[in-house]
Write a protein that binds this DNA or RNA. Sequence first.
DNA 1: TTGTACGCGTTATCAC
DNA 2: GTGATAACGCGTACAA
Lengths: 334, 334
Amino acid sequence: MARLVDIAQAAGVSVGLVSRVLNEDPVARATPATRQRILKAASHLGYRPNYAARALKFSRTDTISLVVPDLTNAMFTELMRGVEDESGALGYTVLLGRSESLTNQDQISQLLDQGRVDGFLLQARDDESTQSLTALIGSSPVVLINGRLDTHPGSVMIDDRAASGTAIDYLLVRGHREIGLINGLRSSLTARLREEGYREALQRSGIRPVEAWITHLGYRALDAGPALAQIMQNDHRPSAVVVANVNAALGVLTKARELGLGVPEDLSVIAIHDAWTCDHTWPPLTTVRMPLYDLGARAVRTLHDRLRGSVGVDSVVDTVAPLVVERASVRSLS
Amino acid sequence: MARLVDIAQAAGVSVGLVSRVLNEDPVARATPATRQRILKAASHLGYRPNYAARALKFSRTDTISLVVPDLTNAMFTELMRGVEDESGALGYTVLLGRSESLTNQDQISQLLDQGRVDGFLLQARDDESTQSLTALIGSSPVVLINGRLDTHPGSVMIDDRAASGTAIDYLLVRGHREIGLINGLRSSLTARLREEGYREALQRSGIRPVEAWITHLGYRALDAGPALAQIMQNDHRPSAVVVANVNAALGVLTKARELGLGVPEDLSVIAIHDAWTCDHTWPPLTTVRMPLYDLGARAVRTLHDRLRGSVGVDSVVDTVAPLVVERASVRSLS
DNA sequence: TTGTACGCGTTATCAC
DNA sequence: GTGATAACGCGTACAA
């Protein structure tokens, strides 16, 4: 509402001076007296710099967009917090979006070209193909979350190998040797890494993975039911499954009940990622908690650096080790 | 990237003309030939109007903000879809936010004064007091979702009375006569209306509400456990409870298990609002589905009218009747 | 120390 | 039909 000119008038000085004082321009300091008059007038009139004018002047909005596949996935709460906290610290405003809503063509470059946002933090849907993703982001300032593109440096990931490795180790300690994996789509890098971690952890203990116990049907609850059914139709069944995602784990629990399988008596279940809802499933779901807050914060810093001119960098947030949140969906066989 | 002047140069005309042609200015039409040249140059250069410049010119951003208490509440998925669809149709961009993040002072007026958004769609936290809310929104263009302020016209609500009334009727038909209510905080208008609907529906059937079976501890899962415990410590227990919210219902299911109460054998549970997660609770949760999509769309239209100068209007979205989604948490007593 | 003037990209008003 | 120009609010180089 109040503009620079208004407070200049109120303080009896020129706009230029007001601008410099308010921006604490180090080169030209004003007389303490006028300085005070300006500050007082500014606070009195409740001055707020006009955003559009600044954006126009600097061709920069100090706004970044965080896009995730599903905002309602409680798993993302922590990620959002990390993003928002770090953004606040770095002076960015965060604009939230859902992957679905940027389905068509070049909505990213559109928002960029329009000068609505400076850059993106993007977690793609896991059924998004590499090539469509490549086309989508082009050379835009985009930091990929939980994804990576060889052609486009600039990404942050959790340690997916360690995630499933931790789950496996937890199960091994409790006597499980026959362990299945209900995984995301093969197109998803995250899913591939989790599978690697799964295989490696088993092999470290001299166990050979059973291919019939590994599915790649997706991260949604909807996908996980059929996945479990498929695994359980084998004559030889696993005593436990690692589910690559909390939502999928919900589907697993439901399907297990449908199949007359008790969890954890007949089947132990452990999921990667954690959410408060896991306290309220039946049985309460044991999970592997990953440092999503840090992931979000790191993503913001990575984008910030990129916007400052650095070349994009790929990194894995492994400063905090995966943590098993013990609830009641895993049984000890010993 | 490409500006008006670029395409003016490419087409060999002036910027003004380009602007008029691109905006389909009805008053001054250009020669078909030049018109074509301009259009061609524009599409060739991939012209996109600069957002900040427009905002500066019009002191209007065509951006509105939707703020809800908890983005991860699956209940809001539909609301968001309604908001986004209608916004798209009306030419607005939607900026998502969480109520928590606008805790302090005047963040609303700040965003408004900065010219970042034109107006707000706001669902307050239910523990937000009337006076702090009043202070928060002042005279800003804010449409309240599921809330109303006598001092500030401009709100949309679902038919909360009908919601609990529908739940009660469903239970009555199945032979329940002793029905509790696990409600939101008394400070929440929504909770008060749901309680009214609850009382009215019971009384219509000649049943006198039992005060000891009514709690007002909040909408969170966390709040609902104690609420159920409190109700169940009475000598005389209800055969069913209406829970005012899906999240709270999760807490109820968990607490019931803890108390050794079978659902629905010992206690029937029905929740207001619906979400996909209700398919994956145990037992699957029977709910009353409310027209949240329409609510979101109506909210946008209401704000749009307000921004166009209309006086704020309060309305109840009751075009679609509450719908019971039958799952398995209610038992028939007959 | 302080004031003036220009430009960011767009639209609108007024000439030609 | 079309072009020049002012204005939106801000920051800053330059002048005083």
